[in-house]
Simulated scan of single mutants.
Amino acid sequence: MNDFSDLSDVAVLMPAFNGQADVERTLASFSESATVHVLIVDDGSTPPIAAPRIDGMDIEILRLAKNGGIERALQAGMEALAARGVRYAARIDAGDLASPDRLAKQRVYMETHPRVAVLGMWTHVVSTSGAPLFDLTPPTEPAAIRREMLLRTCFTHPSLMLRVAAVIEAGNYRARYRAAEDLDLLMRLLKRHDGANLPEFGLFYELNESGISATKRRAQAVSTLRLQLRHARVTNPLDWIGIVKSIAHLVLPYRALRSLKAKLLKSAPSA
């Protein structure tokens, strides 16, 4: 019988490039009833990331010789977790904060839903000062996620818990689609497995103007569009609406898009 309070087969996977203070703040946000295992992939930081001492945490650092980008860091991290026999990888990025018992809640769901290989949670989006901006409440059920996957963001990447074996089987993270490595992996996972979201908030996502979505917005939009065109289903109109949205991301200013998105989300009815 499974012990749902046990997190021995779960590891938090966090890529990091510099930002020691953000790493420490993020890890300190975890509040679980069992020891939390963490793998930090130091993507060539100068100075190197140091493992903080946090009660209730077992922290390991995998150091990469040089900065190769988040795609390479996640790929190396997932390979390391697979080699260690870890079953579940819980993603989070430096600067984001976890809600209490996030890992335990996700593991319980994964244990009782063996067809699910990727599980997200709803997300509070906040500014770098912690001020609330808007909430992300994507669909929770596998069928709705499959239907809407190319229309909208159905998962917040740093909220995910992933089955490590399924990720490796699907080909792991890869750098073929720069700044859209999460969507690339998810589309491959959903070919053989289900995806779901817990209908509760598990993450405070920090919207940082210097983050990937801002500094690599065009590369992300191009990669997303390439993936949409590759996976689009002729009979699903939502896929084609998603393609139009990606084209809009390529031609409209980032701040205008972010402002419009925030207004739409605030005016949408609560799920």
Score class of each variant (00 low, 15 high):
I241E: 10
M121E: 13
W240F: 11
A221T: 00
S99Y: 15
E206Y: 09
N18I: 12
F17E: 07
S246M: 11
G171H: 06
L81W: 00
P139H: 11
A144Y: 11
R176G: 12
A21Y: 06
L97V: 12
A11M: 06
P48Y: 03
F4Y: 09
H113W: 00
D42C: 06
D239E: 06
L162C: 04
M1Q: 15
Y177D: 07
L252F: 06
L64M: 12
R147T: 10
F204I: 11
Y173T: 12
H157F: 15
Q220R: 12
P138D: 09
R91F: 09
E79G: 15
Q20T: 05
M1C: 09
Y254C: 08
R152F: 07
L198Q: 03
H157A: 13
L203T: 05
R178P: 07
R84L: 06
L227V: 00
L207Q: 11
S29W: 01
L162E: 00
L39M: 04
T140K: 06
E79P: 09
N197E: 04
A89M: 04
R233M: 10
D55Y: 06
K245I: 07
A104D: 11
T128I: 15
V23N: 06
L183T: 06
A34G: 10
A11E: 06
A34K: 07
E181G: 04
L183K: 13
V108I: 13
M57S: 02
S270R: 13
V10W: 05
Q20V: 13
M78Y: 03
D58E: 05
V86D: 02
M149E: 08
T235E: 12
L203Q: 05
R255F: 15
R192D: 11
L13K: 02
A104V: 11
L252K: 07
V12G: 00
R176N: 10
G56T: 13
A50H: 15
R176K: 14
A256P: 09
R233Q: 10
R258T: 13
S246L: 10
E206D: 08
L160H: 09
A76D: 04
A166Y: 06
H37D: 05
R115A: 11
N2H: 09
S213T: 14
N172R: 01
L81R: 00
L229D: 03
R174G: 14
S246V: 14
A98I: 00
L250H: 04
T26A: 03
S31V: 12
